[in-house]
Amino acid sequence: MRFLSRRLVMPNDLNYANSLFGGRALEWIDEEAAIYAICQLETTCLVTKHISEISFQSPAMQGDIVEFGLKTKSVGRSSITVTCVVRNKATKKTICLADSIVFVALDPVTRLPMPHGKNLESLEKQTLEEIRSLNMEKPDISNL
Rank of each mutant, 00 (worst) to 15 (best):
M1E: 09
R2A: 13
F3Q: 09
L4A: 01
L4I: 04
L4E: 06
R6G: 07
R7N: 08
R7H: 11
L8Y: 14
L8S: 11
V9I: 12
V9Y: 01
V9S: 05
M10K: 12
M10I: 14
P11G: 10
N12K: 11
D13S: 02
D13V: 01
D13C: 03
N15Y: 06
N18K: 14
N18W: 15
G22A: 08
A25R: 05
A25F: 07
L26M: 07
L26E: 06
E27K: 14
W28P: 13
I29L: 11
D30S: 11
E31Q: 12
E32Q: 10
A33F: 06
A33E: 02
I35S: 05
Y36T: 01
Y36D: 00
I38C: 08
I38P: 04
Q40C: 15
L41A: 03
E42A: 15
V47K: 10
T48F: 00
K49D: 13
K49R: 15
K49H: 09
E53N: 14
S55V: 15
S55R: 14
F56R: 00
Q57C: 07
Q57I: 10
S58P: 07
A60C: 04
M61V: 11
M61W: 09
M61G: 09
M61S: 08
G63A: 03
G63K: 03
D64H: 10
D64R: 08
I65G: 07
V66G: 02
V66C: 01
V66K: 05
E67C: 04
F68C: 03
G69I: 07
L70G: 01
S74T: 01
R77E: 10
R77A: 06
S78G: 02
S79L: 03
I80S: 00
V82A: 01
V82T: 02
T83F: 13
V86E: 06
R87W: 12
R87P: 09
N88G: 03
N88L: 09
A90P: 08
K92E: 08
K92V: 11
K93H: 15
K93L: 15
T94H: 02
T94W: 00
I95A: 01
I95R: 01
I95C: 00
C96W: 00
D99G: 05
I101S: 05
I101F: 04
V102P: 01
V102D: 00
F103D: 01
F103K: 01
A105D: 02
D107N: 03
V109I: 13
R111F: 15
R111M: 12
R111G: 04
R111L: 15
L112W: 07
L112H: 08
P113V: 01
M114P: 05
H116F: 00
G117K: 03
G117R: 02
K118V: 03
K118H: 06
N119G: 04
L120S: 01
E124W: 06
E124H: 04
E124D: 08
Q126I: 10
T127L: 15
L128V: 10
E129I: 11
E129S: 10
E130S: 05
E130D: 08
I131T: 06
R132F: 13
R132S: 15
R132I: 11
L134N: 11
N135K: 10
M136D: 09
M136L: 13
M136S: 07
E137H: 14
K138I: 09
K138T: 10
P139M: 12
D140S: 13
I141Y: 10
S142M: 12
S142W: 13
S142G: 08
S142E: 12
N143R: 14
N143F: 15
